[in-house]
Write a protein that binds this DNA or RNA. Structure first.
Lengths: 121, 121
DNA sequence: CAAGTGTATTAAATGTCTTAATACACTAAT
DNA sequence: ATTAGTGTATTAAGACATTTAATACACTTG
C-alpha cells in the first residue's frame, strides 16, 4: 500500500501523510473507507506507532480523514478537502512557475512541460 | 541585499544560497561581480561565518560562483550555470505538475495557471 | 609585513525526528 | 461485565542536522 523512502530526507511521518493524501486524492481510498489502525500500519511499515499517529493527526487537521476514538480513521467526504487541496496545489504551481520564469524558461517550454506530464500514462 | 526568514524551517545556509542564486539568475548580480566576503556577509546577516561558507560552497559546486582563495567569490558566466538551472527548474516543474494532476486539477486549468504567471507584469 | 581573503577543525548547544515503553479512555463484540 | 482493538498521551532516550563559537592555516594584495 505504501512504501517509505529512506533516502528521502523528509520525516517519515510527513512521507506517510503525503502518500496517504495522494491515495485519497486519486480515489485509491474512497470516502468512508477505513484506514489501517495506527498500530497495524506501524507494523506494516516497520515504523513506530507514534510516527503513524502524527501522520494521521496531520491528515485529520487538514480534513482528509475523520478520527473516531475507539473505532478508527475514515476517509472524509471529498467536499471536506477538495477545495483546500485545489487551492494549495494551485498556489504551489504558481510559485514554481514564477521560479521557472525567473530562471529564463520561455512560456512555450513551460507549457509544453506541463502538457507532457498530463499526456503521460 | 538579503533578508533571512526565521519562521522558515529550512536551514539558514540553504536560504542564503537560494536567495543568492535567485539574484544571480535574475541578473541582480552580474557575472564577474564580487560577492561579499564570508565574514562580511555573516556580519550583515547576523549569522556564523560557517553558515555563509556552506552557502558559498554549494553555490560554487553548482557553478553559480567561482571561488578564489585569498581574493573572494565572483559570479560565474551565465554559461556555467544556465543549463543546469534550466534542467533543475524544469524537473521541479514536472514534479509540481504531477502533484497538481494527482490532486485532480484538469490540464486546461493547470496550463491557464502557468500562462497567467507568465502574462503578469 | 599586514590586512583581508577562503578554508578547515573541534567543541558545544539546540532542536527535530524516531524509537521505546507505558498508560488511559473509548468502542464493539462476546 | 469482560475482552480485544481502537485512538491518544506521556516520558525517556538516542540519532542526527543545524548553528554557533573559537581557533588556526594558507593564500593574495598592497
Amino acid at each position: 500500500m505504501i512504501v517509505l523512502d529512506y533516502r528521502d530526507k523528509r520525516p517519515l511521518n510527513e512521507q506517510v501523510a503525503e502518500k496517504l493524501m495522494n491515495l485519497i486524492a486519486q480515489g485509491g481510498l474512497a470516502p468512508g473507507e477505513r484506514l489501517p489502525s495506527v498500530r497495524n500500519l506501524a507494523l506494516d511499515l516497520s515504523v513506530n506507532p507514534n510516527t503513524v499517529q502524527r501522520a494521521y493527526s496531520s491528515l485529520e487537521e487538514k480534513g482528509y480523514i475523520t478520527t473516531i476514538t475507539g473505532r478508527g480513521n475514515y476517509v472524509s467526504e471529498e467536499s471536506r478537502w477538495k477545495d483546500s487541496l485545489l487551492g494549495e496545489v494551485l498556489s504551489e504551481l504558481r510559485e514554481t512557475a514564477e521560479r521557472v520564469k525567473a530562471a529564463g524558461v520561455g512560456m512555450e517550454d513551460a507549457l509544453k512541460c506541463v502538457k507532457e506530464v498530463y499526456e503521460r500514462v
